[in-house]
């Protein structure tokens, strides 16, 4: 694979470190029309690092695998998901400095409120599994995005299956 210049890999992961803000699409006042603008709140920046460095976030995301997928309406972990999560736990236990936010997501086939609750179930299922594998609960938080942040945008099962996910997002912070 082509190794990108390191500068390009230092992607700003908005709000993950300084304020543990997993809303990577902006931070700022909940209200206050016109106040601040995008990114007015605290923004943490974490370098993803070199994917060839087995201690980097890039390595975790790509080689270990940062996400697991779910069946429709379900939050139970499949055997494949458990394997990925065992790998995550192993890596997280040997890289204890990273703070962890687990994002739960749903596909668009559902009402907004239900999908928020479903995303929380999925994130929680992953958190519980990682705890069972020895990852410290104090390093982890969960957040649900419901159907607000699909990664794939088509309206067929090919996309839906990738959107029903829980993503383990790392940052170099002082814990959560």
């Amino acid at each position: 694979m082509t190794i990108l210049p390191k500068a390009l890999l230092v992607v700003a992961v908005l709000g993950l470190a300084a304020c543990n803000n997993p809303d990577r699409f902006g931070a700022g006042g909940a209200g206050g029309a016109g106040a601040g603008g995008i990114g007015a709140g605290g923004i943490g920046t974490t370098g993803l690092g070199d994917p060839n460095d087995p201690r980097s976030i890039a390595y975790f995301n790509q080689a270990v695998g940062d996400r697991v997928l779910f069946a429709v309406d379900q939050s139970t972990l499949s055997p494949e998901a458990r394997m990925v999560l065992q790998g995550q736990a192993q890596w997280l236990n040997s890289n204890p400095d990273y703070a962890i936010i687990i994002e739960g997501h749903a596909d668009e086939q559902g009402t907004r409120e239900y999908n928020l609750a479903l995303g929380a179930r999925r994130a929680s299922a992953v958190q519980d599994f990682l705890i069972s594998q020895g990852v410290s609960a104090t390093r982890m938080r969960t957040v649900s995005y419901g159907k607000e942040r699909p990664i794939e945008v088509c309206s067929t099962e090919a996309c839906y299956m990738k959107n029903r996910r829980a993503v383990t997002v790392l940052s170099t912070g002082a814990g959560v």
Binding site: A33, A35, R112
Partner: peptide, 12 residues
């Protein structure tokens, strides 16, 4: 009239 600036996801 707009009430928030779009910096954060808002719902319902």
């Amino acid at each position: 009239a707009y009430l928030t600036d779009g910096a954060s996801i808002v719902l319902a």
